[in-house]
């Protein structure tokens, strides 16, 4: 989503130009970079209950995360939920992306694109509320199950399944739009060429379409994975108090337990995983494109 800077237009070097960027840059340095550095420093401090923290240079907070089975479990749950959600998004998102890029008519397409894009920015709290209405014990699905006689008393809330379902609905639009745009960039004539050479639709899909949009699929998957790693509202509201994932744990440690050093360490582990994955996927995608474009 961040991407490289846009290509430069033919421009003149005007000496004052960088100063135009100075206020915005300064703002980001002051309120993002500096606090992050401070937090990184704090993550090496020692936590003393009742006294907040003491200046130190210790790796104890990171060691605690690695050795304490509770936090191993938190990380495990987070990775597991993220991986499953991402896998579902890849499988479920592709047909929609392909439909939007290739099959939807010129009148239908803008409407469908809006239908995908609008939920993207509806807010995670509201979307969680919506899923609570869907999944709760008086919810739509419970009622449907009762009416159709499948099950009498269904309550899907506070289960990992519910978290994954809600998470997938949050992430799907990201997946769909990423893959759709990569399909949009791939020439549809290439598929027609494969078909004219005698490839049936499924072989065209496997041999041509999937390889062509694989950078999009990778980018979409990484985006989904990163977003679900960092999800807060969904695990808290849908997963309930017994479901522990990384982002809520960071919040609890820093804001509730006031254990800044450990909370800071957790935050950095979370950010490191996020950044490494994002950068790696950019590198992979770029290498891919370079191989094709020479």
């Amino acid at each position: 989503m961040a991407g490289r800077p846009p290509p430069a237009q033919p421009r003149r070097r005007i000496p004052g130009a960088p100063f135009l960027a100075a206020p915005g840059t300064l703002f980001v340095v002051l309120f993002l970079l500096l606090p992050l550095c401070l937090m990184l420093r704090y993550s090496f401090n020692r936590f003393v209950p009742g006294d907040m923290m003491r200046e130190a240079l210790t790796g104890a907070n990171y060691a605690k995360f690695l050795h304490d089975p509770f936090y191993q479990d938190v990380l495990g749950t987070t990775l597991w939920v993220s991986a499953v959600s991402t896998a579902i998004c890849v499988v479920a998102g592709f047909p929609v992306a392909y439909y939007l890029a290739r099959s939807a008519g010129p009148q239908l397409k803008p409407a469908l694109m809006m239908a995908v894009a609008l939920p993207l920015l509806m807010g995670n709290a509201v979307r969680s509320a919506a899923w609570m209405v869907m999944l709760g014990k008086n919810g739509v699905l419970a009622k449907l199950a009762a009416v159709t006689g499948i099950a009498a008393d269904v309550n899907l809330m506070y289960t990992p399944t519910a978290v994954i379902v809600a998470m997938v609905s949050v992430l799907l639009p990201f997946m769909i739009i990423t893959v759709q745009s990569s399909l949009e960039n791939a020439d549809r004539a290439i598929e027609e060429a494969a078909a004219s050479l005698g490839a049936p639709p499924l072989r065209v899909l496997v041999r041509v379409v999937l390889p062509l949009c694989s950078p999009g699929l990778v980018a979409g998957a990484v985006l989904c994975f990163v977003l679900s790693m960092n999800a807060y509202a969904t695990p808290v509201l849908i997963g309930g108090p017994k479901m522990h994932m990384m982002a809520p744990t960071v919040y609890d440690e820093i804001a509730k337990a006031m254990n800044w050093p450990f909370g800071a360490a957790l935050a950095f582990i979370l950010m490191a995983v996020t950044l490494i994955l994002t950068v790696a996927s950019n590198v992979v995608a770029q290498r891919h494109y370079r191989k094709w474009t020479g």
Binding site: P35, L36, L38, M229, N230, Y232, A247, A267, L270, M271
Partner: peptide, 8 residues
């Protein structure tokens, strides 16, 4: 990540 930036 939002939660990390917020914490910082």
């Amino acid at each position: 990540p939002g939660i990390v930036g917020g914490a910082a």
